[in-house]
Amino acid sequence: VGDQVLEIVPSNEEQIKNLLQLEAQEHLQLDFWKSPTTPGETAHVRVPFVNVQAVKVFLESQGIAYSIMIED
């Protein structure tokens, strides 16, 4: 199991704000291929294997929908 690319769908401005804060966490080494800008629009982010669980827990705790787009 390696890195994953998640497709994330924020449903409101609050969730977009939370994702932008997540993007700013440099220690997570997230690679946003497509940043969140509009509710209902997908964002794509590559998550290093060591941080996959932490990111998924965060998304679930914020009620942000996501799916695994690419499993490496």
Rank of each mutant, 00 (worst) to 15 (best):
L59V: 01
N18Y: 14
L28W: 13
G2E: 10
L30C: 05
Q21L: 12
L59P: 00
P10F: 13
Q15P: 00
V45R: 00
H27G: 10
A24I: 09
H44P: 02
I70P: 12
V55N: 00
A43L: 15
T38N: 07
S11F: 11
Q15K: 02
V5K: 04
A54E: 11
F32L: 02
K17E: 09
T38W: 07
T37M: 12
P36A: 12
M69N: 04
Q25V: 09
E41S: 07
S67T: 13
A54F: 13
S11V: 14
S35C: 14
I64A: 01
P36K: 02
L19F: 03
D72C: 15
D72Q: 11
V47I: 10
E60D: 10
E60G: 03
Q53D: 14
I8G: 01
T42R: 11
T42E: 03
F49S: 14
S11W: 08
S35E: 07
I70Q: 10
A24C: 08
H44C: 15
E7L: 15
A54I: 12
V5R: 04
I68H: 04
A54H: 09
E41Y: 06
S67G: 06
L30K: 01
E26D: 10
Q21I: 12
T38Q: 11
S11P: 01
I64S: 00
S35Y: 14
V1H: 15
T42F: 05
L6V: 04
Q4V: 15
I8M: 05
I16L: 12
E60Y: 03
E23L: 14
V1E: 13
V45D: 00
Q29T: 06
E41L: 06
S11Q: 10
K56W: 03
D3E: 09
V55H: 00
V9L: 11
N12C: 04
V50E: 14
S61N: 11
Q25W: 11
A43V: 15
V57C: 13
E26P: 07
L59Q: 00
P39T: 04
V47Y: 01
Q53G: 07
V50W: 13
K17P: 01
V45K: 00
E71S: 10
T37P: 07
N18S: 14
V55A: 02
V50P: 10
A54R: 08
K34D: 14
A43D: 01
H44R: 15
V50H: 14
S61Q: 12
Y66C: 02
V9K: 07
K56M: 13
P36Q: 02
F49M: 13
L6D: 00
V55F: 13
T42S: 13
L22Q: 02
V5N: 07
Q25C: 13
G40Y: 07
F58T: 03
N12G: 04
I8T: 01
H44K: 11
V57S: 13
Q25S: 10
I64F: 04
E14T: 10
F32G: 02
V57Y: 12
S35V: 09
G40A: 03
V50M: 12
A43F: 13
E26K: 15
E60C: 04
E41V: 09
Q4E: 08
A65V: 09
I68S: 04
A54Q: 09
H27E: 11
I8W: 02
R46K: 09
K56F: 07
L59D: 00
E7W: 10
I16D: 00
I70S: 13
V55M: 06
S67D: 05
S61C: 09
I64N: 00
V45E: 00
I64Y: 03
I68K: 03
L30H: 01
P36M: 05
P39Y: 04
Q15T: 02
H44F: 15
I64T: 01
G63I: 02
G2P: 08
H27K: 08
N51Q: 08
F58W: 14
P10H: 01
S67W: 08
Y66F: 09
S11D: 09
Q29S: 10
Q62S: 10
F58S: 02
E71D: 13
D31K: 14
V57L: 13
L28Y: 08
H27N: 10
D72G: 08
Q15H: 07
V47L: 03
P48V: 03
N18F: 14
H44I: 15
E23W: 14
T38G: 08
G40P: 01
E60I: 05
Q29C: 13
N12W: 02
Q4T: 14
F58L: 05
H27P: 05
V9M: 13
F49K: 12
